[in-house]
Nucleic acid binder design. Sequence first.
DNA 1: CTGTGTGCAAAGCTTTTGCACTACT
DNA 2: AGTAGTGCAAAAGCTTTGCACACAG
Lengths: 142, 142
Amino acid sequence: MVNEYPSSRAEVIELMRDKGVNPTQQRIDIAQALFAKPQHLSADQVMSLVNQQRAAVSKATVYNTLGLFARKGLVREVIVDPSKVFYDPTMSPHHHFYNIDTGELIDVESGHFELSQFPPLPEGTEAEGVDVVIRIRNSATH
Amino acid sequence: MVNEYPSSRAEVIELMRDKGVNPTQQRIDIAQALFAKPQHLSADQVMSLVNQQRAAVSKATVYNTLGLFARKGLVREVIVDPSKVFYDPTMSPHHHFYNIDTGELIDVESGHFELSQFPPLPEGTEAEGVDVVIRIRNSATH
DNA sequence: CTGTGTGCAAAGCTTTTGCACTACT
DNA sequence: AGTAGTGCAAAAGCTTTGCACACAG
């Protein structure tokens, strides 16, 4: 298993400290929801999960915290749907199937892809990452 | 040159008819803005372009028309920025650099990539397309 | 007590919806 | 006249901003 998800509260806090994120109560709640298992959650879904347990974390805090986590390298932002961003706790290199019929997002092991010749980058820039999304649809549908 | 962009009004109308899009005045205006040259425009930018020439096309019509064009295969939606969709008049298979510092979007010739082994699709689905985005940033920046 | 960092209500943008209107049959 | 398709004002939804509050030094 490439990714070890922190399961206990203590492990979550340790990971946050490693990544330079101050572990406050709201952030711990949000991180625990994300790292519960491999999954792809929208900000809205994260908020539902968090607020069904403890009292309340505001929408703004959920958004700001997810953005912070992404910048700090705790989670990955997956941009496939114009209407919302998904957050992916799996940080190892991998790509995604995106089912345009169901909105479902599925991890694809990296290694299926070969960048035969990495295209020359524009002058004065460096690569930050490569995102591959394979859009799929249900066969029955047309 | 792989893509021939319709340059005259007549050519734009012909292309729309080919693709099964009823060529109304608003749609022609929008199509002409898009096909003026290879570029990546947001809905907002399209509206500015269209409305600086003729009187006025509403925001809603711009959005609805761009969505229609994308479904009909006149333009391609490029989803790289959570905040907005870009529309790309180049329909030949290609990928994109996305400069996260400047928001700039640059075409990359396809062919740099090799799908060594296409990953097995989930049961009951078929591939619709593959999007590859190489995120880059300015070297100076950190 | 001061300064940095955090959380959230309210504001801002992009996009979608529902309905009036148009243009064919 | 009836019907299918078009355009837009208003509504909705996702995300960011600006400020009040909390906490460490």
